[in-house]
Design a protein around this nucleic acid. Structure first.
Lengths: 148, 148
DNA sequence: GACGACGTTGACGTTAACGTAAAGTGGTTG
DNA sequence: CAACCACTTTACGTTAACGTCAACGTCGTC
């Protein structure tokens, strides 16, 4: 029998359990509850660019953060293409020309507007849920009293 | 020439412009900026069930509200199947049995949790946007001063 | 009575975001 | 060394949510 150990391919720095620097694809997949396939797909789509040690991919903090942001973006309904656009512009920022930067600001304003609408949608949806729930509880109460 | 008038198939109750009761598919489509195809698809998926006058569909307030809720749900990342599930349960509520109602409450709690996570995601995303934006503005400023 | 705008069904096409299967590599473990 | 993972690439399959096109009916209008 074996003590459940980290992946064979994971960085092995047993003396420094905090401050881990690298991750295997499987580790990352479990951390974010996605499949390795998904992570490779994101790379193929230009959202990640992990280091390579031979054949295998090595993910650093930067990659982990990117994946986190990507998944957050997805939960908010952004397409991978949109997310990539922002990432690319962000990376190109230091030496970006004015036109590129202004375009980036435009995109950001757009996303921001999207966020605002989503906030409103959520508020409205929460009211709907409240409403439906209270009605459901009413009916349940009636049923309970009928039984009694 | 013609004064832009409502659809030929729209309900014609010229003397009561407020309190309109019915809509054509085209009207609804324009109101919500979707195509008629989309609306027919939603019907096919069990999200709408408009009245029929002969061949053509007649939409009432109830249908309009459903469409509105459906689109809102979509913006929040729900699948049409999920939305339909809630709608069906809601319709079946008055004479629903206890098991069904409890299931409905479960689903609602689930949606609620989803909303909460989305709220958090939005907050985080907004901070990211703030961050990226301020960096972009910095770079732009530097460029401007260089030119001067 | 032809025309154009709007409506209908039916069928096939498309895109995004992965899933899945096959076939191979490389390290460790009993 | 054989078995067993975890990882790799390649390629084809799948699902949701419509788009698109054809072929047709039905108004109101010129």
């Amino acid at each position: 029998m074996m003590i459940p150990s980290p992946d064979a391919h994971a960085s092995v720095n047993g003396s420094l359990p905090r401050q881990r620097r690298t991750y295997s694809i499987g580790e990352l997949a479990r951390m974010f509850e996605v499949t390795p396939r998904t992570i490779r797909f994101y790379e193929q789509e230009g959202l990640l660019a992990p280091e390579r040690r031979g054949q295998t991919r090595i993910y650093h903090e930067k990659d982990r953060v990117r994946l986190k942001l990507t998944l957050r973006g997805k939960r908010l309904g952004f397409s991978l293409a949109e997310i990539r656009e922002v990432i690319e512009m962000y990376d190109a920022m230091p030496d970006g020309n004015a036109r590129q930067l202004k375009r980036l600001l435009e995109i950001l304003a757009d996303k921001r507007a999207n966020m605002e609408r989503q906030l409103e949608d959520i508020r409205l949806m929460q009211r709907e849920l409240d409403d439906v729930e209270s009605r459901a509880r009413e009916v349940l109460d009636r049923l309970a009293r009928q039984d009694a």
